[in-house]
Design a protein around this nucleic acid. Sequence first.
DNA 1: CGAATTTGACCCGCGC
DNA 2: GCGCGGGTCAAATTCG
Length: 180
Amino acid sequence: MENYQMFFPCSSTGQSTYPFSTNMGSSNAYHNLHGESSKGFIGLGTENHHVPRDEVNKQISQRTESFARDESDEVKPSKKKEKKIRKPRYAFQTRSQVDILDDGYRWRKYGQKAVKNNKFPRSYYRCTYQGCNVKKQVQRLTKDEAIVVTTYEGMHTHQIEKPTDNFEHILSQMQIYTPF
DNA sequence: CGAATTTGACCCGCGC
DNA sequence: GCGCGGGTCAAATTCG
């Protein structure tokens, strides 16, 4: 939050491969993604081969005793064991100095945990739109602390709240790319 | 004053 | 069965 301005390094920090910064800069970031994981976010997010002994592929556990959870929890507990309900997750790998990549949506942080082989904590965010259960987690690599891995989970069911001109355009394209 | 963040506790799946 | 590691909740606190 306090470093919000650093998100636009056009003037001070010189060029950086920020994901959504400027028109020209954005292409750099996309190429970076494309080169790293060879499919970008188009492929399934479960190819986090970067992290050793990653157990991030585990399915999402559901709470049982949540009485007044929000209107509709998608999966009901105590049944449904034939197939794993693991939602697809999309991992981005960006080179950024800040963890909070503002993609135009409004996120509320709901947790932070330390990862075993990482000295940086992982932050959990959730979309604050009513009825939108999209989650994301942001993690920084110990190996290269300039790399920030952002993992999205789910799809937004609404429009972007923040019409930051160029961002909206990029985001709309991202939605088209996702295999939903 | 309401919304967002912080932070420790709790829960759950899995490996030993 | 227990411990570990990761994910989420929720009360307290801070921020706008």
